[in-house]
Design a protein around this nucleic acid. Structure first.
Lengths: 197, 197
DNA sequence: GTACTCGGTAAACAGGTGTTGACTTAAAAA
DNA sequence: TTTTTAAGTCAACACCTGTTTACCGAGTAC
């Protein structure tokens, strides 16, 4: 059933609103199932709107996917701000350990999805690169240091893998571990990779 | 062009051989592009055989995918043997740091792919679970210790994420890092997660 | 009221998907 | 050789994919 439908309100006509409904539904589907496994009819049904509106508002399925990507990038930037990341491994760990249906883990998983499209790949790569640099800076190092940059990217990749494994595999105890369970090991992981020796 | 074709040999009829050709082509495709993005015609073309033979030898696309999964599981077991894993973080790191087109990283990426089929999911989950346990044992702990099991699974998830990021994102310097580059940070990562305090 | 705008709908489209069945033909058995 | 077996081929199938087109009708301006 559509997310916003109620018996009393048959949903007034509002292009902006339905555009956003489509975007949210697409974000969920693309993140959970990937690009190829998701059909435009799935997305439209989830959003409770007509399929043709995807082509109208986003030009194509790929256009919708790109919109999801940039929307995700924007929200990451909005959430974490322009300021450098929290400096302590503890704080970084806490971000990664968040619920995997929202927040950073969710966005990281989407960033791994690929439509095969070139411009989408560029968006994805740009964010990963900048996020890696900020992670290096947060560790109190220069982003020019190739070694620490590699280590920061390993942290990023590890966080993504953990998020993916948590949501998709059902591997226990990892899948249903709470943030409290995850923070201590993640703190160790981040500390070992980024802390100055 | 087909992997085995040469000008001199028009390939003799051999059910076992073509079955294996299909399996190898499917492994590559499924691992690189995922289940939904891969067509049976792609696989058949790569293998240089007729599409209909997929249905004949593996019953369906899903059957072929399952065959890939169990084949991958078998090879992991064959490679790492029944004996516990190497005990040192260094040795484990070296496995994870291997080339991402073969060996453990390759297999781990395939294990993340999903066809949505239930029995395939079970195969995947069984291997992940057992591999996590062996990792815990290799760390010199009991597999019953919930905390160390969680940490072992985090190592597994991290290794998978790294393999995926290396092959799919093109994020530098991670994407083209050599094993020598990767082993030191990975040794730190594994040591921090699994070493006794 | 009428005319216009534009968000929304329905049906069809062209092409690609996995799968099937009848056929051919190479190789082994008689 | 002839017969028999089974590996491989071909063409069609029913369905699903993303996308487009023509149409409907609620809300607004006149």
């Amino acid at each position: 059933m559509a997310a916003n439908e109620t018996a009393t309100s048959p949903r007034r006509r509002d292009a902006g609103k339905t555009r956003q409904l489509l975007l949210e539904a697409a974000l969920q589907r693309f993140t959970r199932d990937g690009y190829a496994a998701t059909t435009v009819r799935d997305i439209a049904d989830d959003a409770g709107v007509n399929v043709a509106l995807i082509s109208r508002y986003f030009k194509s399925k790929e256009g919708l996917f790109e919109a999801c990507l940039t929307s995700s990038v924007d929200e990451i930037k909005r959430t974490t701000g322009d300021t450098p990341l929290s400096r302590t491994p503890e704080a970084i760990a806490r971000q990664i350990a968040g619920p995997c249906t929202e927040g950073l883990p969710h966005h990281l998983v989407l960033l791994l999805r690929s439509s095969g499209d070139e411009s989408a790949d560029r968006i994805r790569l740009d964010l990963l690169r900048s996020y890696g640099q900020r992670l290096a800076v947060a560790a109190g190092r220069s982003a020019d240091d190739e070694d620490i940059l590699l280590r920061a990217q390993i942290v990023l990749a590890a966080a993504t893998g953990i998020a993916l494994m948590r949501t998709k595999s059902g591997l226990e105890p990892l899948a249903s571990a709470t943030a409290e369970d995850l923070v201590p090991p993640l703190r160790d992981l981040i500390g070992a990779l980024l802390q100055k020796p």
